[in-house]
Design a protein around this nucleic acid. Sequence first.
RNA 1: CGCGGGGUAGAGCAGUUGGUAGCUCGUCGGGCUCAUAACCCGGAGGUCGUGUGGUUCAAGUCCCACCCCCGCAA
Length: 308
Amino acid sequence: MRIVFMGTPDFAVPCLLRLLSDGEEVVGVFTQPDKPKGRGYALTPPPVKTAALEHEIPVFQPNTLRDGEAEKTIRALAPDLIVVVAYGKILPAEILFLPQYHSVNIHASLLPKYRGAAPIQWCILQGEKKTGVTSMLMDEGLDTGDMLLHRETEIAENMTAGELHDVLSELGAQVLSETVAGIRTGTLHPIPQTGESCYAPMLTKGLCPLDFSKPAQEVHNQIRGLSPYPAATFRLSGKRIKAFRSTLGGSAKGLKPGTAAFCESDIVVACGDGNLVHITELQPEGKKRMSASAYLAGHKLPEGTILT
RNA sequence: CGCGGGGUAGAGCAGUUGGUAGCUCGUCGGGCUCAUAACCCGGAGGUCGUGUGGUUCAAGUCCCACCCCCGCAA
């Protein structure tokens, strides 16, 4: 099948590769323009572009899909289907329904929950026990199209967003493969999204600072939901520290929220509900990411120290 | 040339006004103990990122160049 693929970040790469290994004819890849990133503002290509170029697929990086140019380009590519995976732009109707089989999207949640930009992280932030991947026939709304297939996966107690991302990314490739196969054979039955929906908006820096006056479980969810990017932070002796991993366990026994308890191999902090959160992996500003025990080997952290 | 922090024993950190390096953990050996990841004693382990660079009687510590790592911001 002739397919135009639209995607941008790492999450979308396994989907693209799966289409190729399935023998689909990927005739073009749309991805976001290269953007200045990192120190020195080096112009950085999106991961999907890199992957596409490695397979010698034509890459298109328009700033907008709404000036008619993109439509002409796609028309010339004459796809049977458009596959969208975390592309980062809304497709106008004239493109959406251009191919014979229209456009399908792979979304990293169990729709209609967690529509939007950051479903993986929000699932963990909200303390969900399971999530999954859904494929849908796209319409003009944001992740509102009729659903085709979905696959569920458990979210382990201490799982981070990064780990879940990798799982869902592979699961997404699997679902995409089955979806394309189903479209080819005409065996899929689109079903409208029903039930309670919610949105997973883009993550902002404002979500990062930890608030130890919250219950330990929420602090824990915040740490793992924002790990590794953008990463939950707290302050210790004037420096900002990112927390990447944590576990729960133990009672704070009347310690005020934010107070460090006995810190041997973990940084143990009292939370608002009287329970403890154990920070096990972190990164001080300007330093590499390290285990809490390594950090504690070189930094004294007496019991009673206040973290904010 | 966006702003900034840092490269010292396996890991994490100190290192004062320049005088050839210390701490915590780990590791090895011994001891204590019913026992232990606990405790005590002892040992090994470092060309202090690179430059057969500059200053100096003397540089981890000052100056110069380069390499590498990281935080912020985008």
